[in-house]
């Protein structure tokens, strides 16, 4: 482990007049596989969306790779929840994966043969090459998740931020996704993953953040993922004001 890649300082986020995140202070280790766990409504998605500057915080700062400007986002591959895009959009799987390459193109610039090759390679990694001409509405839940991850790989970023990638998918896909994540970690990438199943945290992740509106505990999984901390996060109904 070599240092910190994301530093969050005193972050507060509110929806209208309801606080969603409260006094978040957090360091995420470079090259880690970090899980974010917590009960429903704990603000897990809110936190990673704030990292991606999709939500504007009330106060606090987020430093990624030593930068706070918008350009740093291009180095982050964001995998949204499956429900967040319109799957009836007329596009093939390859079209969607190619979008990962748009990050490296300026306005008006088109993708080239090289980008196509990278996209096809990413599809191969996710064992989706047979589906490359399939319309996205015809994909199953697991295949959609794999297509999204292929897009992230095609983007060729150093940091991966994923919102419940293992939610509602079959066990084969789950194993495939975890294999790919481990392989990419070995290549130096960092993973921040919102995760739902507590029973697999120890097996899948080396770091964990336990939260419920505020950070309950964070650090190496073995040290932090204890019954005490989990109970604290799941018992309390979040911090009041």
């Amino acid at each position: 482990m070599d240092g910190t890649i994301i530093t969050i300082k005193d972050l507060n986020v509110a929806y209208q007049d309801k606080p969603a995140l409260w006094h978040i202070n957090l360091d995420i280790r470079k090259n880690s596989r970090t899980a974010i766990v917590g009960p429903n409504g704990a603000g897990k998605s809110t936190m990673i969306k704030t990292m991606m500057k999709l939500i504007r915080p009330v106060s606090g700062s987020i430093e990624i790779d030593g930068r706070t400007d918008k350009g740093v986002l291009k180095n982050i591959a964001y995998v949204p929840q499956k429900g967040e895009v319109n799957w009836d959009f007329p596009a093939t799987v390859l079209d969607v994966v190619l979008m990962g390459r748009y990050v490296h193109k300026g306005w008006v610039k088109r993708t080239q043969k090289k980008d196509r090759d990278i996209a096809l390679e990413a599809l191969k990694t996710m064992k989706m090459e047979a589906f490359c001409d399939r319309q996205i509405s015809e994909l199953s839940g697991g295949q959609r998740q794999r297509a999204f991850l292929a897009r992230a790989i095609a983007q060729d970023a150093d940091i991966y931020v994923m919102d419940e990638p293992l939610q509602g998918i079959d066990i084969t896909t789950e194993n495939l996704i975890m294999d790919v994540i481990r392989k990419l970690q070995a290549e130096g990438k960092t993973f921040i993953v919102v995760h739902h199943q507590l029973n697999t945290v120890k097996e899948y992740f080396d770091h964990v953040v336990i939260m419920n509106k505020t950070i309950i505990a964070d650090g190496p999984t073995d040290a932090v993922f204890t019954g005490d901390n989990i109970e604290k996060a799941y018992r309390e109904k979040g911090v009041g004001v």
Binding site: K53, K74, Y78, P80, A91, M99, Y102, W107
Partner: peptide, 22 residues
Amino acid sequence: ALFYKELKLTTFDPKFAFIAGF
């Protein structure tokens, strides 16, 4: 024709478009 890529991306996945700098 000129903004085909941008139109496609912002229509399908506006959040990703934002991250990609469009």
